[in-house]
Design a protein around this nucleic acid. Sequence first.
DNA 1: CCTCTGATCTTCT
DNA 2: GAAGATCAGAGGG
Length: 214
Amino acid sequence: MPESARPVRLTRPFYRRDSVAVARALLGQRLVCVGPEGRLTGLIVETEAYLGECDRAAHSYNGRRTARTETMYADGGAAYVYLNYGIHWLLNVVVAEIDVPQAVLLRAVEPEEGVETMFARRPKARGAWDLCAGPGKLGAAFGIGRAHNGLDLVESDELYIEQARRQTLPSRCIVAGPRIGIGYAGEWAAAPLRFYIAGNRSVSQTPPSRPKAP
DNA sequence: CCTCTGATCTTCT
DNA sequence: GAAGATCAGAGGG
């Protein structure tokens, strides 16, 4: 088998950029989680950039550094996992240099491998497209939890991101809009820091449009 | 189609 | 004590 056929994993320099660049470049790449149930994968279709200390919507706003936010200060490539609303585990990718607390929230994935396992974990899903169509859903379907916090996506064999395309998607395929659920963030609430693949069904908050009979 | 609400835990006031 | 990077179910139009 030719060496070039082997899937390539995203490397440190990929993550050591600002969160907007990484949030856009992650679209179309492949999230991989290897757990007790086997290998789960999906193409990333929706992300959100969190800019760090200056960003009122970020956990690291104003340099806040606690046991919970500590992972955000890690080197680019770390997984930042936290419990949201006491119920949902959300998966983020830490970006930029060490001690620069920027991150990208993975909001939605289009399932590829392990769909059966994902359905077992999320029986309420209305279809494969809906299994990971939202950050909480993604965490549940992939079995993300506290144990994944701090894992290095560049080195870990349990959680990482494979290169599924060489270049960032062309701008015409990427929609940018305000981030979800951060209305409290004042001036930052309207900033276009949410990115998703235009027309993709697994993007969150996109209810299935009923096909209209002629 | 839509809006409202409960669930449940961490953090900060 | 309150609010939060959410989801699913209930109820009304």
